[in-house]
């Protein structure tokens, strides 16, 4: 495994943060329970394979979602900004510094929260709550909005890395 080249004078100031998408976790659990109720109310027998197999699939789905949505990680620093969704780190979005035109902290109203990971031709949104949120504007015009525990620290790390890059 090779390390990316050093930025600036060799000092790396990096911010890492982890958030949990409680809404995704809760929604999956509720949906899972509803599916189970529907399956059992349709008059199936527990010993029936037709009932057990879907139940197993639902259980796996809920488990997978709880595992993945409970950990949304972001790193910001000289190697750019990276978002990793879930314990396996997928989907993953990485934006090197030279592709980030602007980084700022915005106050996200709750009705603009995406409650998950969304990718559209113009926007990438990975927000799990309202309030202070990191907003990146890429040089391509794409707008990236990400929830991190301390948005100001993340943006400060990106600005410091950008300044060190220009000095070098």
């Amino acid at each position: 495994m090779t390390s990316p080249p050093l930025a600036g004078d060799g000092t790396h100031a990096v911010y890492t943060g982890r958030t949990t998408s409680w809404t995704t976790v809760a929604a999956t659990c509720v949906a899972g329970v509803l599916l189970v109720l529907m399956a059992t109310s349709s008059g199936g027998d527990w010993s029936d394979l037709v009932i057990v197999l879907p139940l197993l699939l639902i259980a796996i789905g809920v488990l997978a979602d709880v595992l993945t949505a409970s950990s949304v990680r972001a790193t910001a620093g000289p190697n750019g900004f990276t978002i990793r969704w879930g314990s396996v780190g997928w989907p993953r979005c990485s934006y090197p510094l030279d592709r980030i035109a602007r980084a700022e902290v915005i106050d996200l109203p709750w009705w603009r929260v995406s409650w998950g990971f969304w990718w559209t031709p113009w926007r990438t949104s990975c927000t799990v709550r309202g309030g202070p949120t990191v907003r990146l504007t890429l040089s391509s015009g794409r707008i990236v909005t990400v929830t991190v525990p301390e948005p100001a620290a993340a943006v400060a790390a990106l600005h410091a890395a950008g300044a060190a890059r220009h000095d070098a």
Partner: peptide, 17 residues
């Protein structure tokens, strides 16, 4: 509190995992 996975922190800090 859970620390970032070694590979991810390593990539951000430009050090090996």
């Amino acid at each position: 509190e859970q620390l970032p996975p070694a590979a991810e922190l390593g990539a951000a800090l430009s050090v090996d995992r």
